[in-house]
Design a protein around this nucleic acid. Sequence first.
DNA 1: CAGTGGTCTAGACCACACC
DNA 2: GTGTGGTCTAGACCACTGA
Lengths: 254, 254
Amino acid sequence: MGTTQLESVPEPKYWHLKNVIGEALDSDFSVGEILPNERDLAARFGVARATLRQALEQLELEGRLQRRRGVGTTVAPPRVGVDVSTAGQAWPGSAQDTWQSYDCAKAVPPAPVARMLGTGIEDETYALRRLRVSHGHPVAAELLYVPATSVPDLSAIDAPSGPSRARAVLRELQRLDLDGQDRSVELGSARADDAKELDRLPGAPVLVVTTRYFSQGRTAAVTVATYRADTCRLTFGDTGDVEISHHAEERRAS
Amino acid sequence: MGTTQLESVPEPKYWHLKNVIGEALDSDFSVGEILPNERDLAARFGVARATLRQALEQLELEGRLQRRRGVGTTVAPPRVGVDVSTAGQAWPGSAQDTWQSYDCAKAVPPAPVARMLGTGIEDETYALRRLRVSHGHPVAAELLYVPATSVPDLSAIDAPSGPSRARAVLRELQRLDLDGQDRSVELGSARADDAKELDRLPGAPVLVVTTRYFSQGRTAAVTVATYRADTCRLTFGDTGDVEISHHAEERRAS
DNA sequence: CAGTGGTCTAGACCACACC
DNA sequence: GTGTGGTCTAGACCACTGA
C-alpha cells in the first residue's frame, strides 16, 4: 500500500490481501506463531470473512500457513523436501525405504491404473497400502497395485490379509528383474481415505506421483502415491557423480 | 443420489456435489462439451451458487473441467504429459529443447533463488524469460537466473536487452561443463506475469519446477519453471535402457 | 463451556467474450 | 446489448479443539 497508484484494472481484494499478509508473515511473524482469528482479521482489513478466507486459502496452498479447525491459523514451517528420485532404485519395499506398509487386500484397480497394467476388470490384483513418514509426520499415502500374474509364486492363502500378506507380496516382487521405471507428477485432491491418513480434510490439494515398474517388457506394478502438497517439496536428486560443495546453501535470508 | 442413506456424519454438500457431477462427466458428457451455466446448475441441485462453485473449483483443480470467464464451463481434455526428465540432459537452450526464449534483463533474483546461487543482493544476475509450448498451447513459463560470474566472457553490451541478449547468455552457458543438476517440484500459485503468459488468472494453481545447474563445484544457474497444474502432468522418463512394448497403453476405458 | 475454522446462503455487482 | 464466470458481502449455523 502507498506505493500503488489507482489501478485502471484493479486487482482483486483477496489478491491484494494475500500479498499484504504474506509480507507481514515475512517481517512480523515467526514459524509456529498463531495469527488472529479470521473474524478479527477480516474486521481489521475491512473485508468480509469470505474474502479474507480466500486470501488465507491461497497462502495455505503456497505452504505459508497452516489452518486447523478448532485451533487456529499458524505460520507454517518451510516445506520439507522429500526425495522421490529413482536413481539406483529398486522395487518398492527393498532395503530401508521410507515407507511402512500396513495392509494388503485384493481389489480392482481404478480404470486408469488398470489401463497402465494392461489388466481386465476381472483380473486379480493386490492393493497394498503404505504410508511414508518424515520427521514424525505422515507426508504421503500410497497404493501399490500388483497383478496376481506378477507374483505367481505367492501361495494363495499364504497370509489371509493385512500386513503379513503385504510383506509376502513385496518379497515376491523383489525376485523379479526390474527393467526400469517411469514416473509422473500431477496435482490432485485427496480422497477421503488418503486425507484421513494425512491428517487433512477431504479434497485437500495433493501431489500425485504415479510410478510404473517394468519387468520383462510389461508393467509389473504401479504405485499411486499422494503427497501433501502444502507441506512437501518433491526432490529429484539427478546430480551426476559430482559432489557439490556446501557453499551458501545454509545461509538465512534476513 | 438415491443410493446414499441419511448420513450420521454428513459429508459436505460441495463434496457430494463434486462426486455427483464428476460421475455425470464420465457418463453423460464428452470432452469439450459445455455445461449449463452456474446459476442453472445451482438451481438444479438446490444449492447456493457459492456451494456449486466450490464443487466446480475442485473439479477444475483435478483437471476435469475448464472454466473461462465470459464463455462458460467445458469438459477438459485429459492432461497432457510434459517431459521434465533430466536424462542425457544439458544446459537450457541446447539443441532442440521445447522452450522459446524471448527476453532477458538484469535483475535481482528473489531471496530463495539468491540463496541457491550463493549470490549477494548486489551481484549482477541475468534473468531470462522463456515459454514452453506444447500442442499449440503454452504450458509453462520459466525464469532462468544466471549470475554474471557464470558467463564472464559475455561482453557487457553485447546486446542491449531482449531476445538477442537471451541467445548470447544461453550460448555462453553451453561452453561450461555441466557437472550435474538437481530438481524439485512443488505446488504454487501463479504470479500475475506468469498467469498472463499461461492464459490463466493470477493465483491459479501451478507446479513449480526448480532446477539447479552445477558447474565446477558451484551452482552456475537456476531455473524456476511454473507449469499449469490444471492441464499438465509432469513426466520423468527414468526408464533404464529397456524398450517397453506397447501393450494396453492406448485402450479406452469406454 | 467458549473459541476456532469449515460450510452454506441469497443476494449484489464487476469483467469479460461474443453477437 | 446479453450471458458467462469472478468477486464480494453480511449474515447464519456446524464441527471440532481444548480448557
